[in-house]
Design a binder for these strands. Structure first.
Lengths: 335, 335
DNA sequence: CTGAAAGCGCTTACAG
DNA sequence: CTGAAAGCGCTTACAG
């Protein structure tokens, strides 16, 4: 910038005004300034300007996801990115892989880089480590899962209601032996969906058969093995509720391998590419990732605009998408 | 930092040394400094330190993708992110949606934020706009598609060879009427894959029937419509080569809708989730996104370490994954 | 409308 | 081993 000012024969401050589009600059000086800048390949340094400016804004927000490579995270990312772009901001991302230590590490890495705010799909169960930064003005919004031991806004899917929707649908189809297959219950979404499964059965006056409940399924392979095992039971399930993408895919593959895909009903939580192309097409609970991501970004930006956080968990509705696998009827009533 | 120094009763420079892990600091002073920092919720400002440091490194690299939300981009992103993380860097991303104007706009946005280097999956056909920054020391690596009108390193899949692999496979199965379905040929990868299709036919002594070639397919729906149309030809194709993910999916759906999925062969370029779960499972050319992303990041970081760019296009090999749809035989020879 | 001085939070280059 | 001064590229808060 100094070189530009020297070459154009103007003051530093004039160069600054030109690049900040201050209208009061003499057109001739502005022309000389831009010419000199072009000749030198000058580029304004946004980080230096953020350092000096009163608000200190870097026009960059941080986003911590489970894994930028997985479809649900990628959909959230795109939604946040679009909302940020419409506000002139870019997004700095990290993948946590469900590792609480990495959550802290990457949150610190983002804050060291002076992001204006943070959106976190948390891996950990204790977010009090952000309290000091929050007191110093940090804006943070949680996404997909609520914060623990920290007061902050959050956006999640309505997981419990969605799971109830799925199980109610299977109950309405005449099923009584409905299996639950899901990820580790330390993951908030898995816990909430299991809760919905239990509530739906209870409200229907059904008891829960613990042999039909399988947790800690982290991969499609693990889910497939669990399904294969369930089918060998003396009283096997006639329907299954799978609480996550990969689990649903593994279950569909295992049912097909056992040639039971047309006799055992299946409803999965979360849609996936080509779910409608399988045989039978898979009935799922859809969560609206674009809305979730946009809402989280909107909450963050409104806080950056001065709005106070309310500590609310915003639950985005889910809905049932009927495709076939969930409509396989249960056994005739024994009456 | 000044407040920390004051509270700890040490000089600014001592605080700086403590947070940069300079070993020569007196343990007692270090203890007092850390205590003061903890009490004040002090956090070092990496952008301020980058501003003053001689190398000016921000430990942040920029990555421009087609769309952070699509599976191939997301896989590249994860690979770049992992390589960056192992070097202590974070990744700032943008989605170009095949818009050349947005490419320039987002490249500028990244450079304004002082990224140490840039990895670009380009949308445009002219990258000379980066030349001035390159002369000023900018490191840039192109990914998936080579640069145009700019001298820089690049990593791509071996698109032409991969397409030849696909078409050779169909020719070996006895097919003579092989359709090509692909995206706009202004997109480098689409052009290269079409080229491979032409080369394979030519080397086999086959003439190209222009009625079997369909470009500009941007969505699964458009691809499905093109396939439906091809099937109404007087002499319809007995096999199809689809040059991209969404096109393959659309083609598979249209073949199924026409109940021709077991009589018309199909080989797609690029794998997709559940390709093995369709009926028939889809034979594809696999491109190795993790290797491509990691290699691009390695090239960028080695340039940041002082290596000179060589202007090479590194072509990552592809391979044929046989699953069933590509092995449907052609008509018996007319002899 | 234009500019000279001071300072954002940090590191460099010295001196002690 | 520790620290006071200067400066990275910019904006603030003034004065002219």
């Amino acid at each position: 910038m100094r070189d530009v000012a020297a070459l154009a024969g103007v003051a530093l401050k004039t160069v600054s005004r030109v690049f900040n589009d201050v209208p009061s600059v003499d057109p001739e000086l502005a022309r000389r300034t831009r010419e000199a800048a072009a000749k030198l390949g000058y580029r304004p340094n946004l980080t230096a300007s953020a350092l000096r400016r009163l608000d200190g804004r870097t026009a960059t927000v941080g986003l911590l996801l489970e894994d930028v490579g997985n479809p649900f995270s990628a959909a959230l990312h795109r939604a946040v990115q679009d909302a940020a772009r419409s506000r002139g901001s870019l997004v700095l991302t990290g993948s946590l892989d469900e590792d609480p230590a990495r959550e802290r590490e990457l949150a610190n890495a983002l804050l060291d880089r002076q992001v204006d705010g943070l959106i976190i799909v948390p891996a950990g169960q204790d977010h009090s480590y952000l309290a000091a930064d929050q007191r110093n003005g940090l804006k943070v919004v949680f996404l997909d899962r609520p914060p623990v031991l920290l007061w902050a806004d959050a956006v999640t899917a309505d997981n419990t209601a969605g799971a109830r929707l799925a199980v109610d649908h299977l109950l309405a189809g005449g099923h009584r032996r409905i299996a639950y297959l899901g990820d580790r219950t330390t993951i908030h979404t898995a816990h909430a969906r299991h809760q919905g499964y239990l509530e739906a059965l209870e409200l229907a006056g059904q008891s829960v058969d613990p042999t039909l409940v399988r947790h800690d399924l982290r991969t499609a392979t693990a889910a497939a093995a669990a399904v294969t095992d369930l089918l060998t039971l003396a009283a096997p399930p006639t329907a299954m509720f799978t609480s996550q993408n990969l689990v649903t895919i593994g279950a569909a593959q295992a049912l097909r391998a056992a040639k039971r895909q047309h006799t055992v009903a299946l409803v999965g939580f979360d849609d996936f590419l080509l779910a409608d192309a399988l045989d039978p097409p898979v009935t799922v609970i859809i969560q609206d990732a674009p809305t979730m991501g946009r809402l989280a970004a909107d909450l963050l930006f409104s806080q950056l605009d001065g709005q106070q956080p309310t500590g609310t968990v915003h639950r985005v509705p889910t809905r049932l998408l009927i495709r076939g696998s969930g409509e396989i009827p249960g056994p005739p009533p024994l009456c």
